[in-house]
Simulated assay, not measured.
Amino acid sequence: MAETMLIKLGILLVGFTYAGVLPYAVKRSIQHINFDLKKYTLSFLSNKNLYGKNYVRGYKQLLFATAILNYLFFWLLSLFYDLGENERYMRQIDYSFAVLALLAFVPHNIYPFKRKNLKTNLQRIIHNLLAVVVFLSLPTLVILFQTAILPDLWFLGISGLLIIVGTIVVTGVSVVKNGINGVTEMLFINGVSIWSIYVTINTFIR
C-alpha cells in the first residue's frame, strides 16, 4: 500500500512537471526574442548563430530534462499498471528517451546544403531525422500504453486513445495547412501535455 502510494505521488509530481515544463519554457523563452512560431520551428532556438550560446545551452538542458521526465513518467506508469513484462512498451520507453536525448545534443543550423559543408550537412540531416523520429515515437509510446491498459481499464484506455488520436489529427491538419512550424509543434506538445495531465489525474484518484 505504501509503495503504491509512493508510485502514485511520483506519477503526480513527474506527470505535472512533464506536462508543464516544455510548454512553459518555450512560451517564456520566445517572449524575450523576435521569434515567429508561424515561420520557424522550435529547433531554431538551438541555433547559436541566431540566438547565441545561452539559448543553445537552455535548449539542450530543456530537451534533456524532457527526455528524463518522459522516461520517468512512463516508467512509473509501468510500475503502477504492472506493464514491466510488456516488452514493446518498455522498449519504446528506452527508444523515446534515446532520441529525445540525442536531439538535445544535435543543434539545428541554417547553412545551405553544399558539398564542402559535409559536417553541417550531416548535422542538419541528423537533426531533422531525429525530430521526425521524436514526433513519431512519443505518440507510439502513448498508444502502446493505452492499448496495454485497455483490456482491464477500458474507459481510461479508450478516452486516452481519443485524446492522443485527436492530437495526431489536429497536428496532421496543421502540417497540411501550414507545414511544419512552431505552431504545429506547440499543438503537438500541448496535446501530449493534456494527455499526460489526464492520465496523471486518473491514476492518482484510482
Rank of each mutant, 00 (worst) to 15 (best):
S78W: 05
L69K: 01
V183K: 14
L136M: 13
L6I: 08
I125M: 07
F44K: 08
L76S: 08
A19Y: 06
L42A: 01
N86W: 09
R57D: 15
K114D: 12
S174I: 08
R91I: 08
F145E: 07
I149F: 01
R28P: 02
V99E: 00
G84L: 06
Y24A: 15
F188G: 00
Q146H: 04
K8Q: 13
G166L: 08
G182W: 00
L156T: 11
F73K: 08
V175F: 03
A131K: 03
A131E: 11
R91V: 07
G20D: 07
L150G: 06
N70Y: 05
K177H: 07
N47Q: 13
S46P: 15
V142Y: 04
F35N: 06
I205P: 15
V170Y: 13
A65R: 04
F113A: 13
L12Y: 03
I197N: 12
L63C: 09
S159K: 08
L150N: 07
G166I: 05
Y89F: 13
I194A: 14
N109S: 12
L150D: 08
V165H: 02
L77E: 14
F97S: 12
F145A: 06
L138C: 01
D94K: 13
V192P: 01
N70M: 11
T66E: 13
A19T: 06
Y71Q: 10
L144C: 02
L6Q: 09
Y95R: 03
S43V: 04
H108F: 13
N181R: 03
V175K: 02
L153D: 11
V133H: 04
I197C: 15
I163L: 15
I194S: 01
I163Y: 10
V21S: 05
P151Y: 02
N54G: 10
L37H: 12
M90S: 04
L162R: 05
Y55N: 14
D94A: 13
W195D: 07
L129V: 15
T203P: 14
Q61S: 14
P112M: 04
Q123H: 03
S159E: 12
E185R: 00
F74A: 02
S137V: 12
V134D: 12
V106G: 11
Y81Q: 05
L83H: 10
L100P: 00
I11T: 11
R57H: 10
L122D: 01
F155N: 09
L156C: 07
V142M: 04
V14R: 04
L103I: 02
T171Y: 11
L144E: 15
G84F: 03
V132A: 12
I68R: 04
G58M: 00
V199M: 14
A25F: 10
A19N: 10
V133F: 11
A131G: 15
V26T: 09
T147A: 02
N117R: 07
M90V: 05
N181D: 10
L83E: 14
L63P: 02
A104R: 01
I110H: 08
K48R: 12
V134G: 01
G179L: 04
V134E: 11
D152S: 09
T4W: 00
L72Y: 00
N128G: 12
N202L: 07
I30V: 15
H32Y: 11
G84S: 06
G15N: 11
A65D: 05
R206C: 05
L69G: 05
L153K: 08
L50T: 08
N47I: 09
E85R: 06
F204V: 15
K60P: 02
T17S: 13
S174W: 06
F64I: 13
L45Q: 01
L62F: 00
A148D: 15
K60A: 12
Q92V: 00
I7Y: 03
